[in-house]
Design a protein around this nucleic acid. Structure first.
Lengths: 136, 136
DNA sequence: TACCGATTGCTATGAGCGATAGCGATGTGG
DNA sequence: CCACATCGCTATCGCTCATAGCAATCGGTA
């Protein structure tokens, strides 16, 4: 079948993103961890005491959408909240959260390394800079 | 805030894909055309008489999800169906569909060219081959 | 100090895309 | 001829993201 779509960088970008996201999700599933959960855990781990709003801004997740995400992490005993003042709360990992983060991070790092391996060597180093130019 | 995520190619890939998809969707909106609609129109335009199943296989869209998509295109008078045999139907563009395709395609090609321009010249040519290695 | 605009966390809701399970009808190869 | 694959379809669900609105609180300024 004639199909000009793969020749479009934007189309290939979306297909590649979907394919890799689906594969990562499969690998994270045994940990009962979504990609969004993990990215939030990573940020909380690196920045103990951050607020939900600050994380949302960093990851471009709307405040409204942080609510169920954080509730899920809290219900799983992975994060704790501590009031900073009357309206803000600082987030931190629990011991369980730290273990989950360690497992998830190891998994992701292995996966990311695999992705790079799939790319022909001569193109490999160019991917990240090219991608960053598209969204940062 | 400390944020190691952009250093992961997979993460940057998803962010870049989302950002560009959102921008393209905005540009297609005035045509009342979704990206999935346009990709299907493109394939039908290039392959008059194809079946819904064949398009779904090519684009990795489940048969079940092709149904509302094609119904939308048909309701908008953009495609027509003609029975091939008792269970298959060939799809073709209507004159309206051809016009829509031409507009959408022009828009997409301009957008894709813009995307490439955003990428520093030394990385530009490497993006497509690197992406294709990740999903094809 | 009193006030007003900005911020925070939240509820409710909808759109878009994708997935699965199952169904009746039909085509096709052994 | 018949078993099996395929086709188009219904129904339904999950995930991600979006918007609108709300009460409470914070912070800078008059």
């Amino acid at each position: 079948m004639r199909d000009p779509l793969p020749g479009f960088p934007g189309y290939s970008l979306r297909r590649a993103a979907y394919a890799t996201a689906a594969e990562l999700a499969t690998r994270l599933a045994p940990l009962e961890l979504r990609q969004s959960d993990l990215s939030v855990l990573i940020l909380i781990g690196e920045n103990p005491g951050v607020t939900a709003s600050a994380i949302g801004r960093q990851l471009d997740i709307q405040r409204a959408n942080m609510v169920p995400l954080l509730k899920r992490l809290e219900d799983a005993g992975r994060i704790g909240r501590e009031p900073i003042d009357g309206k803000s709360q600082g987030l931190a990992l629990t011991p369980v959260g730290r273990r989950t983060l360690a497992k998830g991070l190891a998994l992701v790092e292995a996966f990311e390394a695999e992705l790079l391996q799939r790319i022909p060597a001569e193109h490999r180093a160019h991917l990240l800079p090219a991608l960053e130019a598209l969204w940062r």
